[in-house]
Design a protein around this nucleic acid. Structure first.
Length: 106
DNA sequence: CAGTTGACATGGG
DNA sequence: GCCCATGCCAACT
């Protein structure tokens, strides 16, 4: 079995995030196999072009806030997109308890 | 090959 | 509640 590279795993996990839901870097890393990869996850998304189709705007920090480094030009962008997808934003923060991506879709 | 960096997470002050 | 320091792993220089 060929285990996908960390990047492939991350891309796969992030690509599985449904609309109206968000996931934290740590969670993605955990789903990918290791929670310590949180940094690698951020790096992966950083190098991945938007053409990859990865909803990077659905990836937030544990605080429920879009990554600080995401501000490359305008965080409002990600927040607005999330709002459009159905994610409620409060004070620039996402209601993690409500919208954090869970495998159990109720 | 070794050192530095990085879109994070957690704990302590 | 905010700031500093540490850990962890992979990619980049």
């Amino acid at each position: 079995m060929k285990e996908k590279n960390i990047f492939e795993k991350i891309y796969d996990v992030v690509g599985q995030i449904p609309e109206g839901s968000v996931a934290s870097y740590g969670q993605i890393a955990e789903l990918a196999g290791n929670r310590r990869w949180a940094r690698v996850v951020g790096y992966a998304l950083h190098i991945v072009p938007g053409s990859a189709g990865l909803p990077c705007h659905r990836v937030v920090t544990k605080d429920g806030r879009v990554s600080d480094a995401f501000l490359s030009g305008g965080v409002n962008r990600q927040v607005e997109l999330l709002e459009k997808e159905g994610v409620g934003i409060a004070g620039g923060r996402v209601d993690m308890e409500r919208y954090q991506w869970k495998k159990c879709v109720f």
